[in-house]
Write a protein that binds this DNA or RNA. Structure first.
Lengths: 104, 104
DNA sequence: ATAGAATATAAATATATTATAATATTAGAA
DNA sequence: TTCTAATATTATAATATATTTATATTCTAT
Protein backbone atom coordinates (compact mmCIF):
# COMPACT_ATOMS: atom_id res chain seq x y z
CA UNK A 1 0.00 0.00 0.00
CA UNK A 2 1.32 3.43 -0.95
CA UNK A 3 1.91 6.43 1.30
CA UNK A 4 -0.95 8.16 -0.46
CA UNK A 5 -3.30 5.32 0.39
CA UNK A 6 -2.24 5.28 4.01
CA UNK A 7 -3.40 8.88 4.08
CA UNK A 8 -6.83 7.98 2.72
CA UNK A 9 -6.93 5.11 5.18
CA UNK A 10 -6.07 7.41 8.10
CA UNK A 11 -8.54 10.07 7.03
CA UNK A 12 -11.30 7.52 6.95
CA UNK A 13 -10.51 6.38 10.49
CA UNK A 14 -9.98 9.94 11.67
CA UNK A 15 -13.49 10.86 10.66
CA UNK A 16 -14.96 8.75 13.42
CA UNK A 17 -12.42 8.92 16.20
CA UNK A 18 -14.02 11.82 18.00
CA UNK A 19 -16.20 11.31 21.07
CA UNK A 20 -19.16 13.18 19.63
CA UNK A 21 -18.95 11.44 16.28
CA UNK A 22 -18.76 8.09 18.01
CA UNK A 23 -21.85 8.98 20.01
CA UNK A 24 -23.62 9.89 16.79
CA UNK A 25 -22.61 6.61 15.17
CA UNK A 26 -23.73 4.58 18.17
CA UNK A 27 -27.04 6.42 18.14
CA UNK A 28 -27.49 5.67 14.45
CA UNK A 29 -26.54 2.07 15.10
CA UNK A 30 -29.46 1.72 17.49
CA UNK A 31 -32.00 3.83 15.65
CA UNK A 32 -31.06 3.32 12.02
CA UNK A 33 -31.83 6.74 10.64
CA UNK A 34 -32.27 10.03 12.47
CA UNK A 35 -32.84 13.68 11.73
CA UNK A 36 -30.42 16.31 12.95
CA UNK A 37 -32.80 17.68 15.56
CA UNK A 38 -33.23 14.27 17.09
CA UNK A 39 -29.48 13.79 17.32
CA UNK A 40 -28.61 17.07 18.97
CA UNK A 41 -31.50 16.84 21.38
CA UNK A 42 -30.57 13.32 22.40
CA UNK A 43 -26.92 14.19 22.84
CA UNK A 44 -27.68 17.57 24.44
CA UNK A 45 -25.32 19.40 22.13
CA UNK A 46 -25.52 22.55 20.01
CA UNK A 47 -27.22 22.18 16.66
CA UNK A 48 -24.36 23.75 14.78
CA UNK A 49 -21.81 21.59 16.49
CA UNK A 50 -23.70 18.43 15.57
CA UNK A 51 -24.17 19.66 12.01
CA UNK A 52 -20.45 20.15 11.70
CA UNK A 53 -19.68 16.69 13.00
CA UNK A 54 -22.25 15.19 10.64
CA UNK A 55 -20.55 17.02 7.83
CA UNK A 56 -17.21 15.46 8.70
CA UNK A 57 -18.74 12.00 8.54
CA UNK A 58 -20.65 12.76 5.37
CA UNK A 59 -17.65 14.29 3.62
CA UNK A 60 -15.72 11.17 4.46
CA UNK A 61 -18.48 9.10 2.85
CA UNK A 62 -19.46 7.37 6.10
CA UNK A 63 -22.96 8.83 6.27
CA UNK A 64 -25.72 9.35 3.73
CA UNK A 65 -28.32 12.07 4.14
CA UNK A 66 -31.82 12.43 2.83
CA UNK A 67 -33.93 15.55 2.93
CA UNK A 68 -37.60 15.38 3.86
CA UNK A 69 -39.28 18.75 4.14
CA UNK A 70 -37.35 20.80 6.64
CA UNK A 71 -35.65 17.81 8.13
CA UNK A 72 -32.50 16.06 7.05
CA UNK A 73 -32.11 12.41 7.94
CA UNK A 74 -28.75 10.73 8.29
CA UNK A 75 -27.77 7.10 8.24
CA UNK A 76 -24.60 5.02 8.17
CA UNK A 77 -23.55 3.88 4.72
CA UNK A 78 -21.36 0.84 5.44
CA UNK A 79 -22.21 -1.89 7.92
CA UNK A 80 -18.47 -2.45 8.41
CA UNK A 81 -18.53 0.73 10.49
CA UNK A 82 -20.40 -1.13 13.17
CA UNK A 83 -17.91 -3.99 13.11
CA UNK A 84 -15.14 -1.48 13.65
CA UNK A 85 -16.97 0.11 16.54
CA UNK A 86 -17.69 -3.28 18.10
CA UNK A 87 -14.10 -4.46 17.86
CA UNK A 88 -12.87 -1.22 19.34
CA UNK A 89 -15.24 -1.60 22.24
CA UNK A 90 -14.02 -5.16 22.74
CA UNK A 91 -10.47 -3.90 23.13
CA UNK A 92 -11.62 -1.17 25.49
CA UNK A 93 -13.45 -3.75 27.56
CA UNK A 94 -10.37 -5.97 27.77
CA UNK A 95 -8.26 -3.01 28.81
CA UNK A 96 -10.64 -1.97 31.55
CA UNK A 97 -10.83 -5.59 32.68
CA UNK A 98 -7.05 -5.72 32.92
CA UNK A 99 -6.89 -2.48 34.89
CA UNK A 100 -9.45 -3.95 37.21
CA UNK A 101 -7.46 -7.16 37.78
CA UNK A 102 -4.34 -5.15 38.42
CA UNK A 103 -5.95 -3.39 41.33
CA UNK A 104 -5.30 -6.51 43.43
CA UNK B 1 -22.24 4.42 27.57
CA UNK B 2 -21.16 7.57 29.42
CA UNK B 3 -19.53 10.69 27.97
CA UNK B 4 -16.37 9.72 29.84
CA UNK B 5 -16.33 6.33 28.15
CA UNK B 6 -16.85 7.85 24.73
CA UNK B 7 -13.67 9.76 25.41
CA UNK B 8 -11.73 6.58 26.20
CA UNK B 9 -13.28 5.01 23.15
CA UNK B 10 -12.22 7.93 20.93
CA UNK B 11 -8.73 8.05 22.39
CA UNK B 12 -8.23 4.40 21.63
CA UNK B 13 -9.27 4.90 18.01
CA UNK B 14 -7.33 8.12 17.75
CA UNK B 15 -4.13 6.31 18.63
CA UNK B 16 -4.10 4.48 15.35
CA UNK B 17 -5.70 6.87 12.91
CA UNK B 18 -2.47 8.43 11.70
CA UNK B 19 -0.87 7.36 8.41
CA UNK B 20 2.48 6.51 10.01
CA UNK B 21 0.91 4.58 12.84
CA UNK B 22 -1.21 2.65 10.38
CA UNK B 23 1.92 1.81 8.40
CA UNK B 24 3.57 0.60 11.58
CA UNK B 25 0.58 -1.56 12.46
CA UNK B 26 0.42 -3.04 8.98
CA UNK B 27 4.11 -3.79 9.16
CA UNK B 28 3.67 -5.53 12.51
CA UNK B 29 0.72 -7.40 11.12
CA UNK B 30 2.94 -8.95 8.47
CA UNK B 31 6.09 -9.45 10.53
CA UNK B 32 4.72 -10.09 13.99
CA UNK B 33 7.39 -8.38 16.08
CA UNK B 34 9.95 -5.79 15.04
CA UNK B 35 12.63 -3.63 16.59
CA UNK B 36 12.52 0.13 16.23
CA UNK B 37 15.47 0.26 13.83
CA UNK B 38 13.78 -2.19 11.50
CA UNK B 39 10.61 -0.12 11.48
CA UNK B 40 12.13 3.26 10.72
CA UNK B 41 14.44 1.83 8.09
CA UNK B 42 11.59 0.04 6.36
CA UNK B 43 9.36 3.12 6.45
CA UNK B 44 12.21 5.50 5.64
CA UNK B 45 11.36 7.80 8.51
CA UNK B 46 13.31 9.51 11.29
CA UNK B 47 14.10 7.36 14.30
CA UNK B 48 12.72 9.91 16.73
CA UNK B 49 9.54 10.30 14.77
CA UNK B 50 8.93 6.56 14.76
CA UNK B 51 9.75 6.34 18.46
CA UNK B 52 7.15 8.96 19.18
CA UNK B 53 4.50 7.16 17.17
CA UNK B 54 5.36 3.90 18.89
CA UNK B 55 4.96 5.67 22.20
CA UNK B 56 1.48 6.85 21.28
CA UNK B 57 0.45 3.28 20.48
CA UNK B 58 2.14 1.89 23.57
CA UNK B 59 0.65 4.51 25.89
CA UNK B 60 -2.75 3.64 24.52
CA UNK B 61 -2.07 -0.01 25.33
CA UNK B 62 -2.13 -1.14 21.70
CA UNK B 63 1.49 -2.26 21.57
CA UNK B 64 3.75 -4.25 23.89
CA UNK B 65 7.50 -3.76 23.92
CA UNK B 66 10.33 -6.03 24.96
CA UNK B 67 13.93 -5.03 25.42
CA UNK B 68 16.75 -7.24 24.15
CA UNK B 69 20.18 -5.71 24.54
CA UNK B 70 20.19 -2.40 22.77
CA UNK B 71 17.13 -3.19 20.76
CA UNK B 72 13.48 -2.77 21.68
CA UNK B 73 10.95 -5.02 20.00
CA UNK B 74 7.34 -4.07 19.56
CA UNK B 75 4.27 -6.13 18.84
CA UNK B 76 0.51 -5.66 18.69
CA UNK B 77 -1.33 -6.65 21.85
CA UNK B 78 -4.87 -7.31 20.62
CA UNK B 79 -5.75 -9.27 17.51
CA UNK B 80 -8.93 -7.17 17.22
CA UNK B 81 -6.68 -4.40 15.95
CA UNK B 82 -6.19 -6.30 12.76
CA UNK B 83 -9.94 -6.83 12.35
CA UNK B 84 -10.42 -3.09 12.68
CA UNK B 85 -7.74 -2.41 10.09
CA UNK B 86 -9.21 -4.98 7.71
CA UNK B 87 -12.75 -3.61 7.98
CA UNK B 88 -11.50 -0.09 7.42
CA UNK B 89 -9.67 -1.19 4.33
CA UNK B 90 -12.81 -2.90 3.10
CA UNK B 91 -14.71 0.37 3.33
CA UNK B 92 -11.89 2.21 1.59
CA UNK B 93 -11.93 -0.37 -1.18
CA UNK B 94 -15.68 0.01 -1.65
CA UNK B 95 -15.34 3.77 -1.76
CA UNK B 96 -12.62 3.67 -4.37
CA UNK B 97 -14.64 1.15 -6.34
CA UNK B 98 -17.61 3.53 -6.28
CA UNK B 99 -15.51 6.46 -7.40
CA UNK B 100 -14.27 4.30 -10.22
CA UNK B 101 -17.77 3.35 -11.37
CA UNK B 102 -18.84 6.96 -11.26
CA UNK B 103 -16.24 7.91 -13.81
CA UNK B 104 -18.49 6.52 -16.53
C1' DA C 1 -44.13 37.93 -0.39
C1' DT C 2 -43.18 37.13 4.56
C1' DA C 3 -42.41 34.54 8.78
C1' DG C 4 -40.73 30.75 11.16
C1' DA C 5 -38.46 26.22 11.72
C1' DA C 6 -34.63 23.04 10.62
C1' DT C 7 -30.24 22.78 9.06
C1' DA C 8 -25.82 24.51 7.22
C1' DT C 9 -21.98 27.54 6.93
C1' DA C 10 -18.49 31.04 8.38
C1' DA C 11 -15.35 33.33 11.28
C1' DA C 12 -12.86 33.58 15.45
C1' DT C 13 -10.66 31.63 19.12
C1' DA C 14 -8.89 27.87 21.64
C1' DT C 15 -6.81 23.45 21.79
C1' DA C 16 -4.44 19.35 20.06
C1' DT C 17 -1.33 17.01 17.05
C1' DT C 18 2.68 16.65 14.23
C1' DA C 19 7.56 16.80 12.42
C1' DT C 20 11.96 18.35 13.17
C1' DA C 21 16.04 18.96 15.56
C1' DA C 22 18.59 18.64 19.58
C1' DT C 23 19.62 16.16 23.64
C1' DA C 24 19.28 12.36 27.03
C1' DT C 25 19.21 7.63 28.36
C1' DT C 26 20.53 2.89 28.30
C1' DA C 27 23.23 -1.16 27.28
C1' DG C 28 27.10 -3.45 25.47
C1' DA C 29 31.98 -3.53 23.79
C1' DA C 30 36.64 -2.17 23.95
C1' DT D 1 35.84 3.89 32.36
C1' DT D 2 34.99 5.53 27.77
C1' DC D 3 33.00 4.98 23.32
C1' DT D 4 29.33 3.74 20.38
C1' DA D 5 24.79 2.12 18.92
C1' DA D 6 19.78 1.91 19.68
C1' DT D 7 16.10 4.12 21.54
C1' DA D 8 13.63 7.73 24.14
C1' DT D 9 12.56 12.34 25.44
C1' DT D 10 12.04 17.33 25.08
C1' DA D 11 11.21 21.81 23.06
C1' DT D 12 9.38 24.22 19.50
C1' DA D 13 7.24 25.70 15.47
C1' DA D 14 3.86 24.46 12.07
C1' DT D 15 -0.48 22.55 11.09
C1' DA D 16 -4.90 20.67 11.96
C1' DT D 17 -9.19 20.30 14.68
C1' DA D 18 -12.78 21.72 17.81
C1' DT D 19 -16.15 24.79 19.99
C1' DT D 20 -18.69 28.87 20.06
C1' DT D 21 -21.31 32.48 18.25
C1' DA D 22 -23.36 34.65 14.62
C1' DT D 23 -25.32 34.42 10.20
C1' DA D 24 -27.10 32.20 6.01
C1' DT D 25 -29.80 28.91 3.55
C1' DT D 26 -33.76 26.12 2.56
C1' DC D 27 -38.28 24.71 2.93
C1' DT D 28 -43.16 25.20 4.42
C1' DA D 29 -47.17 27.55 5.64
C1' DT D 30 -49.77 31.67 5.84
Amino acid sequence: MSRQNFHLYANLLKSFCHPTRLEILELLKNRGELCVCHIYEELELEQSNVSQHLKVLKDQGILISRKEGLMVYYKVKYREIYDILDKTKMILQQQLQESLSQLE
